[in-house]
Amino acid sequence: MNWVSSNLDLVWELTLAHIALSVPPIVVGFLLSVPIGWIANRFRLTRGTILVVLGLLYTIPSLPLFIFMPLILGTPLLSSLNVSVALTIYAVALMVRTAADGLASVDKDVLQAASAMGYSGWQRFWRVELPLSGPVLLAGLRVVSASTVSLATIGSVVGVTSLGYLFINGFQRNIPAEVVSGIVAVLLIAVVFDLLLVLLGRVTLPWSRRERTGSPRSARQRTALLAGGVS
């Protein structure tokens, strides 16, 4: 505990660096996966190929991938972009199948009804298919988030600052408290990210909750509604 109290600044600094390293791959991975998943579903023949090939990317060991990134991207050896891009690849590998399954899980009757109502293809995607696959997409995103936060630690091996530094340094100098605080910090980030995602789901997908009990807000709306116009 002594080590922690005297190195709080370092842990905090590394935590922020770790978050900065993890967030872009999660976001970009998600944004890439949804259209790729959509394309995979669109053309039945390509579905198998796309999903298997992208899924296999996850089996590439992370350390070699981090090391090879500068060769592929032409980036400097110590650039954090190497790790970001590699983590994005893993995020896509994890997310694409979920995205494809999520989009395919939308009730065909509902899609048919949407077309019959006069949604154009584009409107139908944004207003019906995407929101209705939301719960599945969110479940996939939570897995991607946890995976990315944990993988980002390996970045420290190739010299990109993250909480992984505490593992390496702690092992080398035999300071167990340092290693443990690294683990705890990584876990905390993963848990906080997960909670934020659950909260995001609550806000954006209110219809998917099991049963709505009359919240104060909905009660207020109902009163306003019964009194006359719709707010």
């Binding site: 009730d107 009757d109 509902v110 048919q112 009804a113 949407a114 077309s115 019959a116 109502m117 006069g118 019906v128 929101p131 209705l132 939301g134 997908l205 219809w207 998917s208």
Partner: peptide, 18 residues
């Protein structure tokens, strides 16, 4: 445009669950 000016009711309602 044609569909928007023709009402359509289907089996199992086909309502938007969200």
């Amino acid at each position: 445009k044609l569909r928007r000016r023709i009402g359509y009711v289907m089996q199992n309602s086909g309502l938007m669950p969200h």
